[in-house]
Design a protein around this nucleic acid. Sequence first.
DNA 1: TATGAATGAGTTTTCATTCAT
DNA 2: AATGAATGAAAACTCATTCAT
Lengths: 200, 200, 200, 200
Amino acid sequence: MGGRRSPAQDRSRAMVDRLLQATTRVLAERGYAGLSTNRVAAAAGVSVGSLYRYFDDKDDLVRELRVRSTADILGDLTAAMSAAVALPTRDAIHQVLATLVAALQRHRPLTSALVNEVPLGAQSNVLPEVEQQLAQFTRMFVAVHAPHLAPAEAEARIYLALGVALSTCLRIALEPPAGVDEGRLVDLAADLLHAGLVLP
Amino acid sequence: MGGRRSPAQDRSRAMVDRLLQATTRVLAERGYAGLSTNRVAAAAGVSVGSLYRYFDDKDDLVRELRVRSTADILGDLTAAMSAAVALPTRDAIHQVLATLVAALQRHRPLTSALVNEVPLGAQSNVLPEVEQQLAQFTRMFVAVHAPHLAPAEAEARIYLALGVALSTCLRIALEPPAGVDEGRLVDLAADLLHAGLVLP
Amino acid sequence: MGGRRSPAQDRSRAMVDRLLQATTRVLAERGYAGLSTNRVAAAAGVSVGSLYRYFDDKDDLVRELRVRSTADILGDLTAAMSAAVALPTRDAIHQVLATLVAALQRHRPLTSALVNEVPLGAQSNVLPEVEQQLAQFTRMFVAVHAPHLAPAEAEARIYLALGVALSTCLRIALEPPAGVDEGRLVDLAADLLHAGLVLP
Amino acid sequence: MGGRRSPAQDRSRAMVDRLLQATTRVLAERGYAGLSTNRVAAAAGVSVGSLYRYFDDKDDLVRELRVRSTADILGDLTAAMSAAVALPTRDAIHQVLATLVAALQRHRPLTSALVNEVPLGAQSNVLPEVEQQLAQFTRMFVAVHAPHLAPAEAEARIYLALGVALSTCLRIALEPPAGVDEGRLVDLAADLLHAGLVLP
DNA sequence: TATGAATGAGTTTTCATTCAT
DNA sequence: AATGAATGAAAACTCATTCAT
């Protein structure tokens, strides 16, 4: 952690960053259909050949983009989850949701591009890593706050809650409805999940 | 109603059906990226030229596919909604959700392809017509069963409920978790939405 | 000549005419690039299959069109040439030129389409039959009015005169310049050819 | 003038030349109808993709071909016209005609293809730039050598002479008649134009 | 390492032509 | 005879990927 990097590694990292940023830009401006390796390289001010030195292929590029954006969001989420364990049930949920919405909003252009433009392939959830992390938290959370639930019942509730949490946060972050207060939406969502997860 | 069809119309309809079924098959097997007009024609056992006799272009093909499956799902949904108005609150919600899950499952291969493979462009909701229909129902439903809510509050709940209902049904229909009873999931979802929509 | 036609032959002739007229129309409206057998058939209100009953292929259609339009022009030309033999040299030439210009103008849409849109293939003169007819006349004409010319010299002048006559008439008929009197152009052309053909 | 070229520029120029030469070859062998980008690329021993690196599209390819050969012909023509101003009337005309014929012959395969194979669209003159250049010369020429003509009369003669000159030169260059001396034809044409342009 | 010209399989789409009805 | 649905070869063009420099 916090290790030194050789100049070569730095140059490498810089290149990768440039390319990923260029990918985001192209994705936002031209959509997935307009995303070509040549275009990305040009947008990054780099040759196509270089792109292929740092990424296996086009898929790898997009995959990496997803992973990176996810990582940043995950950071926030993890912190929020750590803080949340000390809070009362509903507040904990609210905290996590609010954090997730904020994180998604912070990455709005990229997230939007990924959600709206990139076909998902086999996996049908947009941000798999985020979902996994969320799942872990939810599981633990249920174990603590709703120990009365039978395992199967707990599983069902977790499964449902995950979907609700993720889709709701995405919706609030990316398509906020006109004339509805965002904070209120997060409040409501927290109430909903609270009810769904821990009520008898 | 019950109109006779000329042989030519039948042939025409048969061709269109064949091509749409082939499209679904190709979509399921090779994904949206692997969906080419030549491939669809081959899968339908028909020449490319014929495909272009019945569809303006590739977009038209996918559009029609969406329209058809949407229409079918909408049919079920509308019926369920009609029946639901007479039921008590929670049962009404349950009825609609169960119907939607069943309809989506019936169109599983296509819906799955649409959700997972087709980049959505600007609109981030799959099946916009279904969402609209659902919105109408929800609005009416709230007006009837939760008249105590202030307009803004009602709006917020409707917005949230819609996202939850749609994403949950899609999730249950397309990615049912191993070892969790599907019926129980719909039950839980109904409870959740009931709580979210009408509780004070 | 002037023979009776069976009903079948009439129907046949009517079909051919319809198709050729449709071809002219399509050629004028869509250009040669937009000339497709299907389009011609549609424009004629006839099935493609029928087109192929009356014409071997697309080329045959266009070829026939050329032949027909030529035939009409040839009729005029022959008459003019017959009358011209009795006239003094320059007047004879003038008569023929004026007749040709008038005939080309009468068929303006078709001629224009043929000249501007249809690639000529191997033969590089637009209206080969017209040229042949004209050549015959010119040859005879030179024999009568310029018997003093050596055979090789006569050949050279005829060759030149033909080109001049044809291209000039086409130009006057199809691209008349703004602000220049057409009659004057024909006059000048007649003078030119007169000088070129018979002067020592 | 005598500028050095980088290897890259040379390669680029070499590629463009190869492709244009291949285009000429295909045009000569298979006609305009048989001119496809794939065929041109194959004839050039190059991939289609490369063709599209150097030309925007098929039109661009043909356009460039026209531009190049036109430029070459124009070069000769301009030189001849410069030299011609010092000559007596008939000799000036002869010089220009002879030069044009020679230039057209030098580009025979291409010119032939353009004249015989490429449908001309709206403009019915092949080589519009050549015609323009010729027009400029003729106008000046008439102003100098036939100042006695009224403006309208001058216009008419210029219009006619242009058509005659161009069509005659094309004819001599592309379809020289068997057994007739080419030089004699140019002589005759010069006489003809001389008479037509400056005689009272 | 970086470059970017070159590749060519693959995509969408058209249209002359055929043939079962 | 007439129809027009069906065909499929071929056209224009794109783009992920490679490799010589």
